[in-house]
Design a protein around this nucleic acid. Structure first.
Lengths: 217, 217
DNA sequence: CTGAATTTACGTGTTACACGTAAGGGATTT
DNA sequence: AAATCCCTTACGTGTAACACGTAAATTCAG
């Protein structure tokens, strides 16, 4: 048996969703709520599996509600329903901690699917959302590839070694000790790196090293 | 009419795919190729819409082939078929420039769907691939969120201003001039930032600033 | 083998950082 | 009203890092 809570500030929507779920034997709606202020308190006192929440807009209040619920009641899975399936709203709600999102392409069967999926501990996104996220991811993958391949190859292996340690906040002296060379030599290496890459400052050198996966953020 | 090329080093696979596509009136296989060395030349001399390529393994040769084809024949859409639908192979082929990927869950109808989708200029990924990519993206989104929210809020607006300029490789003197304050004050601000955030070096300060979107890479 | 690049290193002057100290202002608390 | 906390400003002093030039030994490729 799955216990559901419904939250929306319009009672009509509550009734509509409620109707869609009537007749399902293993789904039970145990809370209807149209008041944001009492929602958290009520949810805290009950053992609810899935909260279905309608997102009319992407207000900070809504996002905060999701974040707060995830903190106070981690077991509760939040399923978002929204007619607005813009990238922004989807990404922000997921980041806030929603475990499912039903876009405007969803029907009764995908609602049920989503509830069962969330109950089983997995995420659920309707088709349109899936496409949207996927496109975004793919293009970010491709963008990644574009931004690779600067001229790390021009640096010698020694120079990269130095850069790597320096990028982990070692002092020149520590680097010198590690390689059994003089501090002045470490300085020379860094000078050469700066000249070779035409960098103006050490800040730029950090950025370069990060871009080229020489150091981790 | 869509013109297709098939590439695989095993002739059996070529015949198998060919069989799946026979009887489709608007799809025409115009090139069967089992030899990597002549593939590019033949493709260059023909006007082919979709290349179907079987990926037995994720070798550099295969990935390079995709990259090279995308450079020399940009109009050509590459559709990958593979029984290995590991994350690695999928991500790498997509990054290399493949426009579609059919995992082991695919059947004849999804092959057709993929061909038409690619011909229309869109990407196509079979269900298992879609799930795989989506999970990866979602977890990266959530990881992002985890790594956010360090204690940027503890920095005063003045301190952030200083950090921002310094992160763009301005010298202390330049920053001082811009704000009509002493160089020593700029130093003080940076000292306070380091103390407050418990940073050991300026390298760490750059990393902090990047993590918290104060400066761009 | 020869020229170019790498690795090593120093000199000298400037800039940045570390750590402490401190005064004045604004906001909040007691 | 006084005490407290934080922010902004600033200095003193010593150390570390950087800028720029120079240079020798080594390595590497044409």
């Amino acid at each position: 048996m799955i216990d559901i809570a419904l939250f929306d500030e319009h009672k009509l929507v509550l009734e509509g969703i409620s109707g869609l779920l009537s007749g399902i034997t293993d789904i039970r709606i145990v809370l209807y709520c149209d008041n944001r202020d009492v929602l958290t308190e009520k949810l805290k006192s009950m053992q609810i599996h899935v909260l279905i929440m309608n997102m009319h807009d992407i207000s900070v209040r809504n996002l905060n509600l999701i974040v707060q619920l995830n903190i106070t009641i981690p077991k509760l899975k939040i399923l978002i329903i929204s007619v607005i399936d813009s990238e922004e709203i989807v990404l922000k709600t997921i980041k806030a901690g929603a475990k499912g999102f039903l876009g405007k392409d969803s029907d009764r069967s995908s609602l049920l699917e989503a509830i069962y999926t969330l109950r089983n501990g997995h995420d659920y996104y309707s088709k349109s959302i899936t496409h949207l996220l996927l496109n975004r991811y793919i293009s970010s993958l491709k963008a990644d590839e574009m931004n690779q391949n600067t001229d790390i190859g021009n640096l010698s292996s020694r120079q990269i070694e130095i850069l790597k340690l320096w990028g982990e906040s070692y002092t020149n002296q520590e680097i010198a000790d590690r390689f059994f060379i003089s501090v002045r030599t470490v300085e020379s290496h860094k000078n050469h790196i700066m000249q070779k890459l035409n960098l103006k400052s050490t800040v730029d050198m950090v950025k370069f090293a990060i871009k080229n996966n020489i150091i981790e953020i």
